[in-house]
Design a protein around this nucleic acid. Structure first.
Lengths: 202, 202
DNA sequence: ACTCCGACATGACAGATGTCATCGCGGGTC
DNA sequence: GACCCGCGATGACATCTGTCATGTCGGAGT
């Protein structure tokens, strides 16, 4: 019997998913969590075989949870389920030791199968997402550029961004300028949009 | 037996939800749809008692589908289920004749109950969302301001926005300026962010 | 008829932003 | 040691934006 931890902030979805997994003879949901922190706590307590994590959750997101679980309990196989599958997320997930990555558009049978796959040590990523990730390539941004772009993501004026990242306004402008150029955007706001779409910034 | 139409682009969720609703003795899912257009077609074909619509779907979104269903088949009770419950969406939904509005964070039993409620002619909106909607109030933007702001939502420079809405660049700047002022934003990009948060633009 | 308001436009000006050249510092690499 | 590259900074310049004053036009109310 494969013991599954289920984390998703949407109660309705989580409940429905749990019911569905319980329907499988060889699966049992031993814990549910609505936030990243809950998921982590539940994982320590129950030591499940597989952790099914939603990407976007309040508090720690699925990727951060997966990272910590992977460090603390390497025996627990993590997999990510998400509505918005950005290429960058997949890369980060794999880097962090995630063994399964599925969009919520996949069918129920696939989910159960993937749970079994990762439990036996295998990996599975959605083919379409994988293709996108390959097509998108790696981020062209330096770490600092990504930081600054993210700090500018809410549309705040340069000065405020500069305060957030503790840089001079001029430096911020330079970073944003090069970032926008690398992303082929006309200004930083477009740059933010494309970087978001690619999953290069949160 | 209450006949339910279920529309959600996330296959996993839709399937799980369907199973869950089928578990109720007095409910049966007669059709499922992954897009707005499919939902509309299925609704015409099956004439269900209740249509459960996700807000964000490819093609027509839940609100547009609800509007058309309400016009074409007033006998079909529409309800919206969504992950991101913005205050503005709720207002628009009620204006369009939607009878139930729930975030996906609600529990499964609530969903079933609300399906029954709207079927008997009642209404149900999530109390928390209702409170937010009241607190948020109506959009301060004129229709045209909202249009222009939405056209500027992806961060495009003024000229491009002007092209999209067939206006002179100067006029666009004026609209964006007044919109930003009304929303208390430092620039149009912040204005876009707050308008999005409130559900005043898609 | 008169008034108000929203849609649309123009012109002008200040301040914010994008761009570029240039600099120093430190960590790798050949 | 020489070199490249990323990080951080400055200054100058051109352009883009935000703001305001001002005007026209048509529809809705009174």
């Amino acid at each position: 019997m494969i013991r599954v931890l289920l984390a998703d902030d949407e109660h309705l979805i989580r409940g429905a998913l749990a019911q569905m997994l319980e329907l499988e003879d060889d699966l049992t949901v031993v814990a549910q969590a609505a936030t990243g922190d809950e998921a982590l706590a539940a994982c320590r307590r129950e030591a499940p075989d597989v952790a099914v994590l939603d990407l976007q959750m309040p508090g720690l997101d699925g990727l951060e949870v997966a990272e910590r679980i992977h460090r603390e309990q390497p025996g627990v196989a993590c997999m990510i389920v998400t509505s918005h599958g950005r290429p960058g997320h997949l890369k980060r997930a794999l880097a962090v030791g995630v063994r399964g990555f599925l969009p919520k558009t996949t069918s129920a049978v696939t989910l159960a199968e993937v749970v079994r796959t990762v439990h036996t040590g295998g990996r599975h990523v959605d083919p379409e997402l994988a293709a996108e990730a390959i097509a998108a390539g790696d981020t062209p941004l330096t770490p600092r550029e990504a930081d600054v772009l993210e700090a500018a993501a809410d549309g705040a004026p340069v000065d405020r961004v500069a305060g957030r990242v503790h840089l001079s306004p001029g430096t911020v402008r330079n970073y944003l300028s090069t970032a926008a150029a690398k992303l082929g955007a006309a200004n930083r706001h477009e740059a933010v949009a494309t970087a978001r779409r690619m999953g290069w910034i949160s």
